[in-house]
């Protein structure tokens, strides 16, 4: 526990000091919210989902914020490798599992904090959280998304030598995961053949879970969402831990 906390603490210290990164990574979802949200609010009709596009978009942007921050936090291990700091951690008499779990929790915490900021800002543009339980449900889903994708980032970073492959992963893995998740549009509005694709995207369940928490409506049963994203986060943690164990330095 001490070791996990130590690694987590370091992540927090670095996070709090990186003001430009904090601002940088909330700017994109915020930009989407303002322009897409206000721009499309009067044009887009969402039958059966309350009809308000901004309110529909908010959970998506919260999820987006958590997704990108957590993948990035996981990938940070590559920087540690390049700056030599990883050696300092790996040569200590601690298990790799503890290091990996500390890193995962650290990344997930920063990601959730980033998502939380979007959530707070959303209160000013139309989000009404009337039910505190719903709010906690949304938070729970944010945590699970954060854990899943930080672990995913660690898994990737454990197999990468440097940052050159990073753009490839972003373009061919992370953006599709985001695009197909129903963060920007209702999954039911897609052509029928794409339905199954959105349903194999784990983030879909995360987004729908947050949406259920914040707005009370979702297109996927929240219990199913919980089960899928829960299992996914365990799977990613196991995969990340497995690959991190074999990291070379």
């Amino acid at each position: 526990m001490d070791i996990i906390y130590t690694i987590w603490l370091r992540n927090m210290k670095r996070y709090i000091r990186s003001k430009s990164r904090i601002i940088g990574s909330i700017s994109m979802p915020l930009f989407f919210l303002l322009f897409l949200g206000f721009g499309l609010n009067s044009v887009v009709q969402l039958p059966g989902i309350g009809g308000n596009y901004i309110v529909f978009l908010i959970p998506g942007m919260v999820a987006m914020s958590v997704l990108f921050t957590s993948v990035f936090s996981g990938i940070q291990i590559i920087w540690d490798k390049q700056f030599g700091f990883l050696k300092e951690t790996l040569v200590a008499p601690v298990s790799r599992l503890e290091i990996m779990l500390g890193q995962t929790l650290g990344g997930a915490t920063t990601a959730v904090l980033q998502g939380f900021m979007i959530l707070i800002l959303s209160l000013f543009i139309g989000l009404h959280v009337s039910n505190p339980v719903g709010f906690l449900i949304a938070l729970g889903f944010m945590i699970m998304i954060g854990i899943s994708f930080t672990a995913f980032g660690i898994a990737i970073a454990s197999r990468m030598e440097d940052m050159t492959g990073f753009q490839l992963i972003m373009n061919f893995v992370v953006f599709p995961i985001f695009g197909l998740s129903g963060a920007l549009f209702p999954i039911s509005s897609l052509p029928a053949w794409m339905g199954p694709v959105t349903l194999i995207d784990p983030l879909t369940y995360g987004v729908e879970g947050i949406r259920y928490g914040l707005t009370g409506v979702s297109q996927v049963n929240p219990l199913i969402c919980f089960a899928v994203i829960g299992v996914f986060s365990i799977m990613m943690t196991v995969l990340g831990a497995f690959l991190f164990r074999k990291i070379k330095f």
Binding site: D2, I3, Y5, T6, L9, R10, K13, R14, R17, S18, F83, G84, F85, K87, E88, T89, V91, A92, P93, V94
Partner: peptide
């Protein structure tokens, strides 16, 4: 590992942390 200390050929500090915090991190590990 418990009985050795090592100074690597290449730098291995966390540049974003202070001197004290680098030491503290090590001490906790």
């Amino acid at each position: 590992r418990k009985s050795i200390g090592i100074v690597f050929q290449d730098q291995s500090l966390d540049e974003e942390l202070t001197a004290w915090e680098n030491m503290d991190f090590h001490g906790r590990l």
